[in-house]
Write a protein that binds this DNA or RNA. Sequence first.
RNA 1: GUCCCAGUAGCUCAGUGGAUAGAGCGGCUGCCUUCUAAGCAGAUGGUCGCGGGUUCGAAUCCCGCCUGGGGCACCA
Length: 553
Amino acid sequence: MHLRDLVASRLVEALNRAQSDQTLPSVPVPDAMVERPQNVDHGDFASSAPLKLARTMHMNPMEIAEKLAALVGTDQEISAVEVAAPGFINITIAPGWLQEQVNDILAQGDAFGSTETGKGQTIQVEYVSVNPTGPLHVGHARGAVLGSVLSSVLGAAGYEVSREYYLNDAGNQIDLFHQSLFARYLQALEKDGDMPDNGYRGQYLIDLGQEMAEIHGAKFFDMKSDKGAVALGAIGIERMIENIKEDLGSLQVGFDVWFSETSLYTDNYYDTVMKMLTDGGHVTQREGATWFGSSALGEEKDNVLIRSTGVPTYFASDAAYHYHKFVIRGFDRVIDIWGADHMGHIDRVKAVVGALGIDSGKLEVIIGQMVTLKRGGETVKISKRTGDMISLKELVEEVGSDACRFFFLARSADAQMDFDLELAVKESQDNPVYYLQYAHARLAGILSNAAEGGKTFDQGDVHLLSTPEELTLIRHLLMLPEVVDSIVETMEPHHLPHYTMELATAFHSFYDRCRVITDDEALTSARLKLCEAARIGFARCLSLMGMNAPDKM
RNA sequence: GUCCCAGUAGCUCAGUGGAUAGAGCGGCUGCCUUCUAAGCAGAUGGUCGCGGGUUCGAAUCCCGCCUGGGGCACCA
């Protein structure tokens, strides 16, 4: 249990006692009992519960606050409980208890920051899942970072996390890719190759066609009918997938499972789901197509499952896919991270999940809003088909993985963002990313200097850590588990970089005011302990964000 | 037309019912004989898009409007 929950439970307990002995009237307890006040003069925690209770209790809020505050009382953990007008209760954590938490952080080591919120629960996070028909671009990078950090944080909160990439290796777009690549291949062989309408026109396919011609010669041209295009296409898709993995790797993004859409068909899950939907009375035939009757479930309209051509839509695949996630693999929760262009997809997938007898509340969809790429204020158009675009690879090469991750992560997923390449590179000289990493490097430097000087800190007395800067640093370190839990609750990982910035501010201020290695051996070892605790904190934050924690800069 | 998201400091963005609205970047003033100045301290900078409403209390909730982006395909 982290600190905020601890304090909240103390308040609830006090309220319950007051109500059971008639000191205060019995009314429902407010949801939010405590918050972190903005102003440090108001203590470590503040409760506005008396103000909220005043109406239902028909009492003066100050009177409620006085009675509650008396019942909370002080002890080893809470050193002060004060009432402030017009009805706040301000709670201060005992400095002695804060100091002892430094020992606790050292004891936890790399596990510091973890919680048990998701203990015993499995959760799947599916992200990126871009069709393997072309290179990843800037917009995909946002979802990739979002998914990877969310997965890490969920892991820190005790969930058993499975990170998944859904590979759309079936369907129209794949056929189109086969034909497009075959056309480029034929062109490379200086034969007639007609690009299909809406084909993939990017430079990458021209290059790949050229390469295939060099490696394989006319082998595929000589094959009969469409077989050449399919055989070549399969090789091409493999190559695209390799490139995607490589690009994601350069951004420190990885997956546990690469799930093949085709397997839903070859392993009959598609048939199973279609039968379930049919048996459940959710399927109708109309205009030659097969429809999912979502309008009967409160949707605006029905959705096509099987086109009049007999080819299933991606929506049909998605139904089978989510059946596989929930029923076959039995995940307790599933998070899908999609781009803004999939917004209209959410309700119907939830509807079909519900129609399959699954609690659709277990499925959560996060939409990563659009990224507008700019270069010196000029908007750079992103189009997969024209080839005029900035790929994820170029982005990482230009800006660097750490800075990319930070910039994408620091913005909330549902806000559109401008990503200015010139600005990101320019700022990287004097940039928030370095502010965080510099804190870690400074700590590592102090600790290695101490080690070289033969100084140890095992016996350090944490109660010597009494300056405001030292206590502020400890306070901020102890917020990490709260941040982890609040990210899990809101599914908003952008809180992590903001928290880490605040932690860095607390540290840099400490560094400036409190020299660690001095002639005072007792104080030196106490401060070394704090430095090690802080280093553990920064290392954990940076690791959760997938960023480097350098020992030197 | 309709649904969703956004509009907060010069710029990029946090803050979604509490007390004096924050950070980074840019600009201004100070601070390096001591563990890394990629740092610290301070000052300046805001009608929280606009107008109503609810509340003891609104950037935050409700209604209307304005602006920008996206969704409403037998595309993915």
